[in-house]
Design a protein around this nucleic acid. Structure first.
Length: 597
RNA sequence: GGGGCUGUAGCUCAGCUGGUUAGAGUGCCGGUCUGUCACACCGGAGGUCGCGGGUUCGAGUCCCGUCAGCCCCGCCA
């Protein structure tokens, strides 16, 4: 094999990362950045970095020309240089097993500076014990931050995942179609980013929150299987796992049921996982209905890497002379609990920390007891007789954590407690990769003032068995809707959609829209459905979140080249900025200083 | 919109109960050094203690406000 032809350009013969012992004797022209320099006086080492990795370049009087040696003594970090030289095996004692290229070095015949770099404001190279620079500085000096191998590798992984997704979906017969970025404001959901129209003064486009409606229209148009790596925009406050603009893998197909989507998407996730070292996906994934997920885990996105499942312990505790339990049961609530095997070793302080996690969800507190060889301890224990421990499934050495009250309160509390207890008690994972479909999400959820809102979006097909309760008991209606959950994180969600205009109209009416509003806001969708839309369904995944999890990055900002801050600012380019009055006038807009400003 | 944490040299951090000239490591500049890979050694420069106000004889330190970054709640169909 000669120097890698795909890497050869006019400026270099190859990249550095692939050089190995078998390249000994090869003459190479390398170009890249000075990562670090070790100047021993008569001998000089330069770590040369490019996208592919690092290689040590050595300069010495026996093989480097005098002028280049002089240049070598003066180059600084991040200077862009070109090296002509020969690959040499390093002396045995000078090999570096930490480095992929550590068996060899390139002895430079010549070294030239292609572009001198300012002393970097934040270091690209970092001392082993040195913390990362402040995130503000990393974002401000993004050029330098992106040169760090960690961020570079995250973006390279992102590329491979997107490529794998395209290849897989293409192989399954899906067609990528682009949909508008300038689109129509949506009546509900997240706040839209608005874009003023110069041609139509006083009128606005919105940036899409997702291509949802367009992809359904593409189904009506007969495209049958669609996907898109789609940019989406939501003008809401941020989190570590939320950005105002983000990327979805958006998928829709015709004449399908949930099983088709599950099969394809399990294949997709398997293909993606194959690109990410340390991530595994084995189909078929587990399934859990939404109702069962809440019953067993207290959340619709359970981390099923470990057990600690919730149980209804109302019956075994029904005879308890304990006000909290009595009151909860009499009010129609339940007592639910989980057992931490061996959890009796947890200290009171540790258990209080678990309780704090539960209280942070709004619950008044937790009930708990330990079963010990001598009997029991903990607030609940003095109400318990020996028979209770057996009925609760509590063995000596175990800890029981319980919550009493309405499910709406106890579920979030027990979910938080379950995760905190696992960590505190060191309960080992039963599996490293827990993939789970949560199915049959409710179509509606209670909104303010007794109104209904969509649980997912207003286009979810109600479960056929529940259709007759749509108007009479809408909150009990399950939808053909599902989420994919990986290790307790929601990767995406989807549904079979409503494809008949009458049913769509019924659902929109239940959401409080009158016919005029429906026609105004959703007329173009209803028209498409009425034109002969096939039954269809799909799913959308948060691409950034997938990359973040697969790359084990701590933040979405570490898998997006140019992310926004928590305050939705772009520090690197400095956006947004005020706009001149004249520019606004042309758009038919005028600035108004807020009265309280 | 609300709550919390952080802000001291280019970078990462220390700075006690308010008290002399605000320190360390690294980076930067100058020098010595032929097998380093956190090279080593010698010398040097480098500070609006985020910003504004207040308390005090005296503020990096205490108080109020404000800005920025991060985390959380609300919000995110």
């Amino acid at each position: 094999m000669s120097d890698t032809t795909i890497e050869r350009t006019e400026g270099r013969s190859r990249m550095v990362g692939g050089l190995r012992a078998q390249d000994e004797g090869r003459e190479v022209v390398l170009a890249g950045w000075v990562h670090r320099r070790r100047d021993l006086g008569g001998l000089l080492f330069v770590d040369l970095r490019d996208r592919s990795g690092l290689v040590q370049v050595s300069l010495g009087p026996d093989w480097t020309d005098a002028a280049s040696l002089e240049v070598g003594h003066r180059v600084g970090a991040e200077d862009v240089v070109r090296v002509r030289g020969t690959v040499h095996l390093r002396p045995d004692e000078a090999r570096n097993p930490e480095l992929a290229t550590g068996d060899i070095e390139v002895r430079a015949a010549s070294l030239e500076v292609l572009n001198e770099a300012d002393t970097p404001a934040i270091p690209v190279y970092r001392q082993p014990d040195e913390e990362l620079p402040a995130e503000e500085l990393r974002l401000r000096h993004r050029v330098l931050d992106l040169r760090r191998p960690e961020l570079r590798d995250n973006l390279l992984l992102r590329h491979r995942l997107i490529l794998a997704a395209r290849n897989y979906l293409d192989a399954q017969g899906f067609v990528e179609v682009e949909t508008p970025i300038l689109t129509k404001p949506t009546p509900e959901g997240a706040r839209d980013f608005l874009v003023p129209s110069r041609v139509h003064r006083g009128e606005f486009f919105a940036l899409p929150q997702s291509p949802q409606i367009y992809k359904q229209i593409l189904m009506a148009a007969g495209f049958d299987r669609y996907f898109q790596i789609a940019r989406c925009f939501r003008d809401e406050d941020m989190r570590a796992d939320r950005q105002p603009e983000f990327t979805q893998i958006d998928v829709e197909a015709s004449f399908v049921g949930p099983e088709d989507i599950f099969r394809w998407m399990e294949g997709l996730m398997t293909a993606l996982a194959a690109e990410a070292p340390g991530v595994e996906a084995v189909a078929p994934f587990e399934r859990l209905t939404w109702a069962d997920a809440l019953e067993a885990y207290g959340t619709d996105r359970p981390d099923t890497r470990f057990g600690l499942r919730l149980e209804d312990v109302s019956a075994p505790l029904a005879d308890l002379d304990f006000g909290i339990v009595r009151g909860a049961l009499d009010a129609g609530g339940r007592v639910r609990a989980f057992v931490v095997p061996g959890g009796a070793t947890l200290s009171r302080k540790q258990i209080e920390a678990i309780e704090t996690a539960a209280k942070d969800t709004g619950a008044p507190g937790l009930l708990w007891c330990k079963r010990t060889d001598e009997g029991g301890s903990g607030p609940l224990s003095r109400f318990l007789a020996e028979g209770h421990y057996e009925a609760l499934g509590l063995a000596p050495g175990d800890l029981l954590l319980a919550a009493a009250g309405a499910d709406a309160v106890t579920s979030p509390a027990l979910d938080a407690a379950r995760r905190a207890a696992r960590e505190a008690a060191g309960v080992p994972f039963e599996r490293e990769h827990a993939w789970l479909w949560v199915t049959e999400f409710p179509v509606f959820e209670p909104g303010e003032d007794g109104a209904l809102t969509s649980n997912h979006h207003p286009f979810v097909m109600p479960h056929p068995d529940d259709l007759d309760r749509l108007e009479s008991d809408p909150l009990s209606v399950r939808g053909l809707a599902y989420d994919l959950v990986y290790n307790g994180a929601e990767l995406g969600s989807g549904s079979v959609r409503i494809h008949r205009p009458e049913l769509q109209r019924r659902v929109l009416r239940l959401l409080g829209l009158d016919d005029e509003a429906i026609d105004d806001k959703f007329g173009f969708l209803l028209g498409a459905l009425a034109s002969g839309a096939p039954p269809h369904g799909g799913v959308a995944f948060g691409m950034d979140r997938i990359v973040m999890l697969f790359a084990r990055a701590g933040s979405l900002r570490d898998v997006i080249a140019f992310p926004k801050t928590t305050a939705a600012r772009a520090l690197f380019e400095g956006a947004p900025i005020p706009v001149a009055d004249g520019d606004l006038r042309e758009l038919g807009l005028r600035k108004e200083i807020p009265a309280d400003g």
